[in-house]
Design a protein around this nucleic acid. Structure first.
Lengths: 117, 117
DNA sequence: CTGTATCCCATTCGATACTG
DNA sequence: CAGTATCGAATGGGATACAG
């Protein structure tokens, strides 16, 4: 009595998966912040602030907090004088590396396309 | 008299490339819309409205317009009665396929991780 | 250095209604 | 069907100042 699986069911699953990703990654700055941590491995608050051009400390603080809650980023307080804070990708966050690399390559290709024509 | 290229220069380039990508792709719905067109190939306005759960017609209209301006999406008016409009990825838009697939796979893995622990 | 707090304007976005 | 128009609420986000 069961219907054969339809193509659309598969597509709906895929759409939901993409949206699950975007729930965590969307936001004007998240991908850029993750890129910074991806390329530099470990990075302090003020470093990321410099890496991500245009971001304010308020937004950086907020977005880092969300990434930490979603277990993509780990925050470590170093007891230097004055205190510094180090951010890095968790193991789970590191699984985004491929996506970041793809986005980097696509960004280069897109830039070339836009300025060539 | 020229300095050797430094690691940081390379990273800065990569960061800029990612940000170039995000200039075009960021926004609450863009990736989901592209996914719909990626998985279904050709899709009408009302279909995408159904695919992307939660989006309003206003936002869909606006985001599609931006994707069209950035040459990722092609819009075709079909002279049916009543008129229907078909959207599809351009050749350039199709180069996002890899990223969409990666985001799909990551979304599935992320979902499993969140609900397992 | 790493944030938080506040003020305030800009933008996003949903709901609803309406048009060709 | 495929949008546009308008309103109002929520969020985004910069500037500045301040705290641990």
């Amino acid at each position: 009595m069961s219907c054969p699986p339809r193509l659309n069911d598969q597509h709906r699953k895929e759409m939901r998966a993409v949206q699950d990703s975007m729930d965590v990654l969307s936001g004007k700055w998240k991908i850029s912040i993750i890129s910074s941590l991806c390329y530099y491995n470990q990075r302090r608050f003020s470093d990321i602030l410099a890496d991500v051009s245009g971001i304010s400390n308020k937004m950086l603080s907020k977005e880092l907090k969300e990434l930490e809650i979603n277990q993509l980023v780990r925050r470590t307080v170093l007891s230097t004088q004055p205190i510094t804070v180090q951010y890095e990708l968790t193991e789970h966050g590191l699984t985004l590396q491929t996506i970041i690399q793809n986005l980097t390559e696509w960004g280069i290709a897109h830039h070339q396309k836009i300025f060539k024509q």
